[in-house]
Amino acid sequence: MSELLVRAGGLYTTVQDTGRFGYYHMGMPPSGAMDVYSAVVANMLVGNPDGAGVLEGTYVGPTLEFTDDRVVAVTGADVPVTVNDEPVEPWTAIRVGPGDVLGFAMIRAGCRVYVAVSGGIDVPVYLGSRSTYTLTGIGGHQGRKLVDDETLPLGSGDGSARPGAVVPEELRPELAGPAELRTVIGLCSYRLTEDALASFLGTDWKVTKDADRVGYRLRGGKLDFTDREQPFGAGSDPANVVDLGYPVGSIQVPGGDEPIVLLNDAVTGGGYATIGTVISVDRDRIAQTKTGDVVRFTSVDLDTALAARRDRRERIERVRREIAR
């Protein structure tokens, strides 16, 4: 069996794929790559199926040593990448061999970096996915983030990778801020006053230090809720409603002043009013914002959200054609 040596785990690097679906109703979030586009494209570059296991690094990337001939690609955040301390291009399929070491310098923009290796990160499949869910310690590599000096299993590639293949600039994500997040308003937006909803959409929200795979906590404004008689089963905070399932991407505002956007490792339900849901395509965008960055919400309808999803699918197929040329 072939292995990838983890010389340094980086700050918070996990094995992810496109997610573990079908268990949300039991309280199990999908996990999976936070920036799906970057993860899928990384896999394409190295000739893997779209849903193969990749590494997702956060802020400080891992240092990886190869033990055999592979093709590797790095996508996602804007960060200088090196092989044996020599700069290499991101969004490009790179041939590496035994003893070669892939490393990262400090990120320039974005937050999460994706590393795909031909053959894929071949950790055991758990409930249909290789994604790591660290809160309960399941999936991925032993259910946790990578640590220094350990090994990861690699699958065998099918030899379809074409070293040198490049994703054109215009098909790489825009990382310059502020991040515009298209949002479908609801399910419990009726709890906000009209002014508060307008203020929510008009505010530049800053990403706090509490921003991880579970959710992003934001700061920058104060939202008022309408007066109401506390319904049976709801908590006493004006932000409370009778418990409901939280959509991935939904925005809740405990206390009215710190909106939380739930993401891939979301809490699956609870008693806070969800005032809107960031559309799936733009969750890739918020995944590339870091603590201190600014995000804004714009209201869109469901048709717009679905059109954006179709556009992204077409964009992914464009990348596939570009790489195959």
């Binding site: 700050l11 802020y59 400080v60 400090m106 230090k209 870091k290 603590t291 201190g292």
Partner: peptide, 8 residues
């Protein structure tokens, strides 16, 4: 010496 990550 520079910060390698954002935060507090």
């Amino acid at each position: 010496i520079k910060a390698q990550m954002p935060g507090v």
